[in-house]
Design a binder for these strands. Structure first.
Lengths: 256, 256
DNA sequence: TCACAAGGTTGATGTGAATCAATCCCCCTT
DNA sequence: AAGGGGGATTGATTCACATCAACCTTGTGA
């Protein structure tokens, strides 16, 4: 049984993010509890600093990488957010995920040596570039890094299974409710309000992710608002009745 | 762009499986090209034999593990096949995958230490039990094992993304066509006929995997048969026009 | 300040797949 | 060989979401 909010798997307790500035090293990074270095001992963590080959800025709407690009590194999000998607030859797009600070991008490339999806910045963003050969090397010696990396990949698999459940077995409003609860949980983990946040993606992108058309997403938002579950104003969301949303996810009031 | 058949990511050339019998060790196993030891040098491969703590038989319909079970090991399928699924509290089931010989099970457990899905044998089957702590340990020393393990996890992520595409963006007959092509490809990789095979799962399980009802699956099979694309007799499938199926996946004859 | 464009909302209508329901078929057991 | 049961097929009907279309809102740049 998976609770609705577990679409992304959480490995840590919430950690408020103090916006102290732009330290470069993992050992100084306020995101480390959400990121790859989590669980690594203090004595080892300084050795991680050599892991981050560079930081890279990606402008809104620009790709971090594209399908077919050679795989060389994975990326940890420092600031901003991204979407990943897969395209079919006839132009159909499937958004496979939205990623926030501390999350790891690029894992799709390891298997074949080529990236198998596109990753696009939803806003001006910055990532840490983690050389994959270097990561493999360090994972062999640093206690915990190997394990944490495996955890990150495993969590991605579990997350993907939850999305399959969502796409394969839930109706439109259940999907959107699960999506909102998931976003809420992830904002919370980053020290933001659980009940009030700003969505970085369009209705169309949400729809693509949830296997719905943008009109359906819009209607579901409106309906939730009528029911007093949320307050929507464009991309700004306020959750008024989180429990109500949770009930919606689980059985849609006993229907079906 | 992903071709339809890449729902499972293939890391190797087809390898005919000679049914020589039940050697226990990886170094002797005829599946190794499909499995975790792939890509590991001859000198190292004998060291893998200590990896497999035990073999375990699982009877048809019996679970290999269930949601919530503590994670201790991953499993490589020696004989038989499995399905994995996720259950919602109201009883809805989503099949997240079907697994065949050489494929790895249990990766969902690493992240949280608990398994997050059920894995059920579709027929009497046998798996190699790979102790996870042992795997981590050996991955640190054996050139290639670490990398191959990462590849396996990455391929699982890529596969999951293809399923999302399927569930989120394709119509019923496209989904079934993609499913059949994928099965065909995987049977081929195991030395079986690309055009004629026996499905181990029910229409309902196929439907759950594809986000469809069993009646819809049945109708789609019948329709493919009318169109001369396949010949179906219960679980026995013969592909008559693979190209036709591929065209179906990509644009449903230009529709939409 | 205005105008435009992109994104979002809302309504009317169409349709693909779900649902409900009635057999049918095959395999398994006795 | 007969009986039973799970799985599969097929048909009639319903319904959730897609599609088509009009309009609104907000942010942006001249």
């Amino acid at each position: 049984m998976i609770p609705s909010e577990s679409v992304y798997c959480q490995m840590k307790a919430p950690a408020p993010v103090t916006p102290t500035g732009l330290k470069k090293a993992c050992s100084q990074c306020n995101l480390f509890e959400l990121c790859l270095p989590f669980g690594i001992s203090d004595s080892d963590i300084v050795r991680l600093d050599e892991l981050v080959a560079a930081q890279r800025k990606v402008k809104r709407q620009q790709p971090l990488y594209r399908t077919g690009d050679p795989f060389e590194a994975i990326y940890a999000i420092r600031t901003g957010s991204f979407k990943s998607d897969v395209l079919l030859e006839d132009g159909r797009e499937q958004v496979t995920g939205f990623q926030m600070t501390g999350e790891i991008l690029g894992l799709d490339g390891i298997g074949t040596g080529l990236h198998s999806c596109n990753v696009i910045a939803l806003e001006d963003s910055e990532v840490c570039v983690i050389s994959y050969p270097k990561l493999e090397e360090l994972a062999r010696v640093i206690e915990g890094l190997q394990h944490q990396f495996h955890k990150v990949m495993s969590c991605e698999i579990v997350r993907d299974h939850s999305v399959m459940m969502l796409l394969g077995s839930m109706r439109a409003e259940e999907r959107l409710a699960a999506f909102l609860l998931n976003m809420s949980q992830r904002f919370t983990a980053r020290g933001f309000s659980p009940t009030e946040f700003h969505l970085r993606m369009t209705r169309e992108e949400i729809g693509s992710y949830l296997g719905l058309k943008l009109e359906t997403v819009s209607r579901a938002f409106s309906h939730f608002q009528e029911e007093g579950l949320i307050a929507v104003q464009q991309k700004h969301i306020r959750i008024l009745d989180g429990e109500g949303l949770k009930k919606l996810v689980q059985h849609q009031a006993g229907t079906r």
